[in-house]
Design a protein around this nucleic acid. Structure first.
Lengths: 324, 324
DNA sequence: CTGTTAGCGCGTTCAG
DNA sequence: CTGAACGCGCTAACAG
């Protein structure tokens, strides 16, 4: 800035102002400064800016998995809103381990983010402490808690699973099975679905769970396991559309009719859910709305509104298509 | 650090050293310093550290799409290597627009990353200029160029498409079609496949291209369009496994046998490629190896090795499965 | 509208 | 093995 200023015949401070508050600089000096910037190829140093202003314009986001479209699409929506206000996202993949998450939180906080987004409402004690000490807005997404660290935006996994169980019972299915992949929230849904369905139908619900992440192959294996366990002629509640899709493929390979021989309910309503054969009945979670709502609450905190609603339930919908 | 030092009975400098070069501090002072850190809940300020040391420990990465598993899995591998060395990734989604990419590059460079990863080898003139001026290692991935900005790690899209065309011809297919989604590299592959197949078979290749990103639904629509255009009884070369999967679903819905009535070749070898019915014949690109190689070249630059090989071709493989 | 001054919280010399 | 002094490049007051 010193160099640019010298070239434009002004001081370093004026250059700084020209960049951050152009309205406070005369149009003529502004012109000369921009010309000097162009000639020198000057790129402002955001690090120094952050140190001086105590605002990094960085928001850190921690998700279990980047390659899981479920989180990726939520982050995309979040990112878009934040970027429109000049914030950049520092994204990390934590896996599903709370200890790892704690380490990531420490690393992220060292960069002094202006806000933090976390996935889920369960965090280590030390993590909570660090986040509170950082005294920046913290948003927990993808779940609901009555005692968030700061703000939470999500939906109730238990209620969603119960709604699916009600749907299955009302659709006339007498028997049900659950298929879930390795993630705590998925298992909570499985549990809630099973309890609720068993209560209303009186029939035991067969379960299969993978420790591994959800894949199409696991969906296929999952249906095989359920059939081996004696399940037949009922509905399979899957913890993700990907697993549900695998069930569809396996059913097809075995010559089982869907939903005649086996019905399928997915979770998430991914973009392919409506395109598979038969189209997937699923629980829709509006991930874009979730990411957007998370961004909005953070931004309103930045505007100084301390009294933001701190528990936002974005709900869910059961989307009935052909598979169940 | 001042506060921590006072509590431990040492100066700020010693605290700094205790954190960055513990071997240069006596074990007793080390102990007291760590105790003080624990009590105060001190979290080092990486911003100030970066400003003083002129090293941000940040590496910026620009990909067309975060939610596209193709890039996400490459970034995951890249990230893992860099993180092991203490670097954090600043990730942005550029879309497929070179102008937008330029804006992102400027924003990223203002954070003074220690290295930059870009997707593709085509960038705006201004982008190249800025990157060169930044004088940090720059890796272009996912393509090959004889004149990279600095380093490139990828494979030849033209050669991959030609290999697929050769495979199709040798497998006995006399007619072919191409299906591709909106991305310059996909279109280059489609072009190369068509030229090569037409030359060897003498038959014109039917083409369909989408401006939109690849989705399963587009794959279905794509097959419909190709059939309408008069295509039948041949092989469809798709620009991604997702499109190929859509073709599979649509063929099934229409009662067409795969590969009997229509054969399918995908691109990428995603994890579901082997799990669909029939399993997908596809062009495998080792995305993990790509991400890892990109990280390794950057890290060796950091170690001061200026003479790193600057064009790395990781190649590809044709994986023959059931669909073609 | 512009400039002066004083930090932001660290790492990096160089002395001891 | 430890500390004093300095500066990284910028923003935030304040004064003119």
């Amino acid at each position: 800035m010193e160099t640019v200023g010298r070239m434009a015949g002004v001081s370093q401070v004026t250059v700084s102002r020209a960049l951050s508050e152009p309205s406070k600089v005369s149009s003529e000096t502004l012109r000369r400064i921009h010309e000097a910037i162009r000639v020198t190829g000057f790129v402002p140093n955001a690090i120094a800016g952050a140190l001086a202003s105590q605002r990094s314009m960085l928001v850190s986001a921690l998700v279990p998995s980047i390659s899981n479209i479920v989180y990726a699409s939520m982050i995309a929506a979040f990112n878009e809103r934040m970027r429109a206000r000049g914030y950049q996202i520092l994204l990390s993949e934590t896996g599903f381990d709370l200890g790892d998450e704690e380490a990531f939180i420490a690393t992220h906080l060292s960069r002094r983010p202006d806000a933090v987004l976390l996935t889920g409402v369960h965090h280590s004690v030390q993590a909570r402490r660090m986040l509170l000490a950082a005294s920046v807005p913290v948003v927990e997404v993808w779940d609901i808690s009555s005692t968030p660290i700061d703000i939470c935006v999500g939906f109730s996994h238990v209620e969603a699973a119960r709604a699916a169980a009600d749907f299955a019972a009302k659709a006339g299915y007498r028997r049900a099975a659950c298929l879930s992949a390795g993630d705590e929230r998925a298992r909570r849904r499985q549990q809630a679905f099973a309890e609720h369905f068993e209560r209303s139908s009186g029939q035991p619900v067969v379960k299969a769970a993978f420790d591994a992440p959800a894949t199409l192959a696991n969906g296929r294996t999952g249906l095989s396991r359920l059939l081996q366990s004696g399940f037949s002629d009922g509905v399979v509640f899957c913890s993700s559309d990907l697993l549900a899709h695998g069930v569809l493929v396996e059913a097809h390979a075995r010559g089982l009719a869907v939903p005649g021989d086996v019905a399928v309910i997915g979770f998430g309503d991914q973009d392919y859910a409506a395109a598979v054969e038969p189209a997937l009945t699923t629980v829709r979670v509006d991930r874009e709305a979730l990411g957007a709502a998370a961004a909005e609450t953070i931004l309103s905190r930045f505007r100084g509104q301390q009294r933001v609603e701190n528990v936002i339930d974005i709900g869910f919908d059961i989307i009935r298509r052909g598979s169940a």
